[in-house]
């Protein structure tokens, strides 16, 4: 009985994952078939997604081959998106990591209050805070700059990043740093050389989270940026939705294109997930 179970177990695991994969990919096949259909039709046609009159026109529209200078503009917008999202990931992680470490390892005045305040910021729907944010960025001369946008994204992602990283730091044994400090390292050196490598999986997840929050955001980017070449991809895509109708074909094609870099980023980031503790040089 158990030996049989052991034999078919890998099969069962694959089966379960494949079911999940079907659930995850089915709606995306609809998006893909819309993207490949002439006129972007095809959202409503039975159980199996299949494109009408297969064409790459929608992709061409998004990439801008039908406009003078359109491709160059799209290229700059792709670059803008990547720069903003990567910078958000870097800035977010750089800001959150030391703060999370302090919360995990030090006892200090205001720690509990700060922690609660961080949680509280996530509870407040941002329904009336767009105009104040606009005025603050204006006062800091960061309006209409990618730096301003990155700071806004990063600071919005920081609370989650801190909680996530603090949890990870708490699972790392204190002995590791203490051993390093006994060997003559300062607290800062122990943090950078010992703790950070050990927390790499969590840092990768946090970076992915910060990246994603910037990659898909549209309303702030559209409000704060006023040059077309600086627009991020969600703003570009959202332009296909008009007052009366939406150009679903190009929108779907753009959505597919937009998700490709995320998959690549994730594919690279997950190597960090696999390496884990041992890569940090921690043995016994």
């Amino acid at each position: 009985m158990t030996s049989l179970l052991r034999k078919i177990e890998p099969l069962l695991v694959h089966l379960a994952v494949l079911v999940a994969l079907a659930f995850a990919l089915y709606p995306i096949l609809w998006v893909l078939s819309t993207a490949l259909s002439a006129g972007g039709l095809g959202a409503h046609s039975g159980a199996i997604p299949r494109p009408h009159d297969v064409t790459l026109d929608n992709f061409r529209t998004v990439v801008g081959t039908d406009r003078v200078g359109g491709t160059a503009l799209f290229g700059r917008q792709v670059l803008s998106s990547i720069v903003v999202s990567l910078a958000t990931a870097v800035v977010g992680v750089v800001i959150a990591t030391p703060a999370a470490y302090a919360l995990a390892r030090f006892r200090f005045v205001g720690a509990r209050t700060g922690e609660r305040a961080l949680l509280a910021t996530q509870m407040f729907p941002a329904v009336a805070s767009a105009v104040p944010l606009y005025l603050i960025l204006d006062a800091l001369h960061l309006l209409d700059t990618r730096l301003g946008l990155v700071l806004v994204y990063a600071s919005t992602a920081v609370p989650f990043a801190i909680f996530q990283l603090r949890g990870a730091f708490e699972t790392i044994p204190v002995d590791l740093e203490e051993a390093a400090m006994v060997d003559g390292a300062t607290r800062g050196q122990a943090f950078v050389r010992v703790v950070l490598p050990a927390a790499r999986p969590a840092i990768a997840v946090t970076a992915l989270f910060c990246f994603m929050s910037a990659w898909n955001e549209f309303i702030l980017a559209a409000t704060l940026l006023s040059r077309e070449s600086a627009f991020t991809l969600p703003v570009v895509l959202q332009r296909y939705v008009g007052e009366h109708d939406a150009a679903w074909g190009p929108f779907a094609a753009g959505a597919i294109l937009v998700s490709l870099p995320v998959m690549i980023f994730f594919y690279v980031a997950q190597r960090q997930l696999v390496s884990g503790l041992t890569a940090g040089g921690v043995k016994g």
């Binding site: 703060a99 910021t121 941002a126 009336a128 920081v158 607290r187």
Partner: peptide, 29 residues
Amino acid sequence: KASLPAYRYTAHAVLVVLVLVVVPLLAGA
């Protein structure tokens, strides 16, 4: 005074979140 080392690790996070998250939310509230 004993908390000062910890503040070195947290100051920038506090500053950024305060200016770009907390103040707009309070103004909204």
